[in-house]
Simulated assay, not measured.
Amino acid sequence: MNARTEPAEAEPVTPARPPVVRELLLVAGLFAVYKLGRQLAADHTGEAFRDARDVWHAERWLHLPGEGAVQSLLLHGDGLAEAANAYYATVHFPATLAFLVWLYLRRPAHYTWSRRVLAAVTAAALLLHLAFPLAPPRMLAATGLVDTARVYGPSVYGPPQTDHLSNQFAAMPSLHFGWALMVAIGLIVATRSRWRWLWLLHPLLTLLVIVGTANHYWLDAIAAAALLGAALALIQAPRRTAATDTAGGRDARELVPAERRVLVGAGR
């Protein structure tokens, strides 16, 4: 009897990781350009407050919920306000960095896609910061909101006149929210767990924090989501294959059935 075998499926090819030194230099360069751009827009105080009043009135005209409704939940106790301030100050960059490092190590193709999307959103945000300087709601007396970071701590900002490390008039769009939303979308696209949709809790919590601490208006988050949507429409996500699912390029759930067919055919 002649053993009949089926041709084995080709071994999936693992997507190549970009050179790590190049990626570090690229990310550092993008961050430096972004910080420089924020500083260029830091002196438009009068314009920033005029834009803030316009945004506040636009939200009321659109019947968006008042930011004070969220903040009132934080002001029930010092602990909630302090936790929200700490989240705002410490989660933004580390969470995004951890996301990119994990993708780089485990999903190289998704890493490249996510890095491009984040770079596009950040570049567009920089242009908007330059064109539309905006004072955050904590600075606008008309909002009646409390600067929770100043009152309860911790705070990442000093007085605008002496704070040379950040541009506090770059409220729109909110990159806190835009980056958090991309982290969630990137992990949902790159993984298969039935629980992966829970990653959406990260941008949801971020949204409540940035609004409740009076660092951003609702429209800041809406603008960030719009920019992210445009970037996702223009930059195509990689296709899901066995090679993109594991660092070794093999997904047992997909490859084992094929190998089983070869073994069964060889035994006939």
Rank of each mutant, 00 (worst) to 15 (best):
V20S: 11
L126G: 14
H44N: 13
L134Q: 06
E67A: 15
L227Y: 04
D78P: 13
A149V: 01
M182L: 15
D251P: 00
V91S: 13
T213L: 10
A3C: 05
G212F: 07
Q236G: 10
R50H: 09
A252P: 00
L204K: 00
D51L: 08
V146T: 15
V183I: 15
G37N: 03
G267H: 06
M172D: 02
A16M: 09
T96P: 00
V121P: 01
L30E: 15
W113R: 05
P7T: 07
Q71G: 04
P137G: 05
A10V: 10
G68T: 05
A226Y: 03
A266P: 00
Q236Y: 00
L73I: 13
S72G: 01
L25D: 02
P160N: 04
G46K: 04
I210L: 09
A119I: 03
L62I: 01
I188T: 06
A233K: 12
W102Y: 14
A190E: 03
V70D: 01
W197K: 12
L198K: 04
V13N: 02
F177L: 12
R38L: 13
T213D: 10
R150M: 11
S174H: 03
A69L: 14
A243P: 06
L62G: 00
E23N: 00
Y104H: 12
A58E: 09
L187P: 00
A84L: 07
L62M: 14
T206K: 06
A123E: 02
V121N: 07
A135T: 06
L165C: 01
G153L: 10
A8P: 07
G68K: 07
V209W: 02
L232F: 05
P238D: 10
E47R: 15
S174L: 06
P19L: 03
P203D: 03
T162E: 14
A142Q: 15
E6C: 04
V262T: 10
T14C: 04
A252C: 01
L80T: 05
L36E: 02
L25P: 02
G37K: 04
L105C: 13
A135P: 01
R253L: 12
P133R: 11
L205C: 10
H92F: 15
T122K: 05
E67Y: 00
M172G: 05
Q71V: 09
Y34N: 13
P133D: 12
W102C: 13
I185M: 10
L40H: 02
P159I: 00
A58V: 05
T5K: 11
D51K: 14
T213S: 12
L219F: 13
E67D: 12
A32Q: 08
L62R: 07
R240K: 13
L200Y: 08
L62S: 01
E254M: 12
A86S: 14
V13I: 15
T143N: 07
G249F: 07
